[in-house]
Design a protein around this nucleic acid. Structure first.
Length: 492
RNA sequence: CGAGGUGUGGCGCAGUUGGUAGCGCACCUGGUUUGGGACCAGGGGGUCGUCAGUUCGAGCCUGGCCACCUCGACCA
């Protein structure tokens, strides 16, 4: 592994790629656009997944699993959804290979094994799930259905980026069914807040909650709510979405229930999801030129102990001295690694764990054993100090909390500087090209205006913030009246 | 899909006028080391992306093909 990563200032894209590869999160694979998530990256995802899963269950959801394949006839049932995804669907047409008679040792698709009906590899699961829900729902007593699934999906993207947009990715998708519009709307917003809370509390990543404009809405949704995060380079990243699907899927799949008055009604739906893209968001929110920076709540390793020893006896002495501390930390459920690998020097390990974003590092050597101290280093601020071994476990526990808070504080400060209100299109273009970030501006509410701005500047409306203040103004583009500001940005 | 790039040991790369493959890191052994990516000595490991052509001889020349990456277009 080479030593340096490309500095952020020099080439942000390359910096990001370097972090992903050199921190050992993921690798390129033999398949274009698909990545291998390596153990360290997967451990990070597992921590995210576990925290989210707990939050889903606390809000009454249960997990289930639906098929990877969606028969084409089901996939196309909800027209807007199908159209929206059609261009990026992988399709299974055959179910068998055979040896190629003209090419020894090679296989070919068996033309006799053509499927009667093509199977779409799910880019999202609304279709297969709503086809299933049809059989689950007869009465209002069957509602609500609050199901989530952890799964992989495939979207055959032209252009991929590690974690941010891969052809196959891991995610969770919640699919709920409700008796009333009101309840479905409440669910949509509730899950948006779950995502917001996860982003802020666990990822230490500030997000803006809002609603998508019609142009950016999920195909098949009545409304798409989202959390939008601001990356260090001034580009926005959609970090999670929660969709109010109305009765679109219920109508497409004829999912109805009998209400208390024995009246047949269509079911109301929501769906919501976050993906491994969050790992990309995490990287671009906190990391620096030394590598990854991870919030303690999600870090696979929260504390690493690097022993410094000239020989086996010294190593044994360090280990013995650290054992009580390690026991204490483990009792506090702190994820810990004691790195006694003898083929790496301490200096190498210091650099390596900084690259991997481990929040707290402890170095202990003979000098410390003598003085009853350790060297304690924190990744977020890259500072280190000598601390007494006495009361260290509690101090470390506190430090992890402090680092978590500091990362959030730091990123929200940066984010605040990245929201710029503008009142003219000239200023809009100027801020966009010179500074980036979110631009808060008046918009007349039409798709035409949004489209025109996108064509001219590549910026899109990231969201209409939920906390938008009522303010009369004029659309920066059309000059028509507007009742509040929306957020524009260049986006990933 | 457009532009560019790259394919040589696990990784990163070099390879001159064509003469039968090398460097750094990593790995193995031994020793010295270890407080910010250690050092010495010895050692193992490569059908040079693929197919064809030119040639006595191809990593190198010619042509085709394939793969992956980057940037852009596209993208809920």
């Amino acid at each position: 592994m080479s030593k340096a990563i490309t500095p952020r200032e020099q080439d942000y894209s390359q910096w990001y790629i370097d972090i992903v590869l050199k921190a050992g999160l993921a690798d390129y694979s033999a398949v274009k656009g698909c990545m291998v998530i390596k153990p360290y990256g997967y451990a990070l995802w597992e921590n995210m997944r576990d925290a989210l899963d707990k939050m889903f269950k606390e809000t009454g959801h249960v997990n289930a699993y639906f098929p990877l394949f969606v028969p084409k006839s089901l996939f196309e049932a909800e027209e807007k959804n199908a159209e929206g995804f059609a261009k990026e669907c992988a399709v299974v047409t055959h179910y068998r290979l055979k040896t190629d008679p003209n090419n020894k040792g090679k296989l070919m698709v068996d033309p006799d094994a053509k499927l009667e009906e093509e199977l779409v590899v799910r880019p999202t699961s609304e279709a297969i799930i709503w086809n299933t829900y049809k059989g689950w729902i007869q009465s209002y007593r069957d509602l609500p259905i609050l199901v989530n699934q952890w799964a992989n999906v495939v979207r055959w993207e032209m252009r991929t980026r590690l974690f941010l947009r891969t052809a196959e990715f891991l995610w969770q998708e919640g699919h709920t069914a409700h008796a009333t519009k009101q309840e479905a709307l409440e669910e949509t917003v509730k899950m948006l807040h779950v995502y917001g809370e996860f982003a802020e509390n666990f990822m230490a990543m500030p997000v803006i909650k809002g609603v998508k404009s019609a142009n950016e809405r999920f195909a098949g949704a009545e409304d798409t709510y989202c959390i939008e995060a601001m990356m260090q380079d001034g580009k926005a990243l959609q970090a999670g979405t929660s969709h109010f699907l109305g009765q679109n899927f219920a109508k497409a799949f004829n999912v109805t229930y009998l209400d208390k008055n024995n009246k047949q009604e269509f079911v109301w739906a929501t769906s919501w999801g976050v993906s491994t893209r969050l790992i990309g968001a995490l990287i671009m929110t906190h990391s620096d030129n030394e590598g990854l920076v991870l919030p303690p709540k999600l870090a696979p390793i929260q504390v690493v102990i690097v022993p410094i020893a000239k020989n086996e006896e010294q190593l044994a002495a360090v280990r013995a001295r650290m054992q009580p501390l390690m026991d204490e930390l483990k009792a506090k459920n702190i994820r810990l690694k004691f790195d006694d690998a003898d083929n790496r020097t301490p200096g190498w390990k210091f650099a390596e764990y900084e690259m991997k974003g481990v929040p707290v590092r402890i170095a202990v050597g003979p000098r410390d054993l003598e003085n009853n101290t350790v060297e304690l280093a924190r990744r977020d601020e890259r500072t280190k100090e000598v601390k007494s071994m006495d009361g260290l476990a509690a101090g470390i526990e506190q430090l992890l909390v402090e680092i978590q808070e500091n990362l959030y504080k730091r990123s929200i400060q940066l984010r605040e500087t990245m929201i710029t209100p503008v009142d003219t299109y000239e200023d809009f273009k100027k801020v966009l090209s010179e500074k980036g970030g979110f631009i808060s501006a008046h918009w007349d509410g039409t798709s035409e205006t949004e489209e025109a701005i996108k064509t001219e500047t590549k910026a899109t409306i990231r969201c209409i913030p939920l906390d938008q203040v009522a303010e009369d103004g004029l659309c920066i583009y059309s000059g028509k009246p507007s009742k509040g500001r929306v957020l524009f940005a260049m986006a990933y």
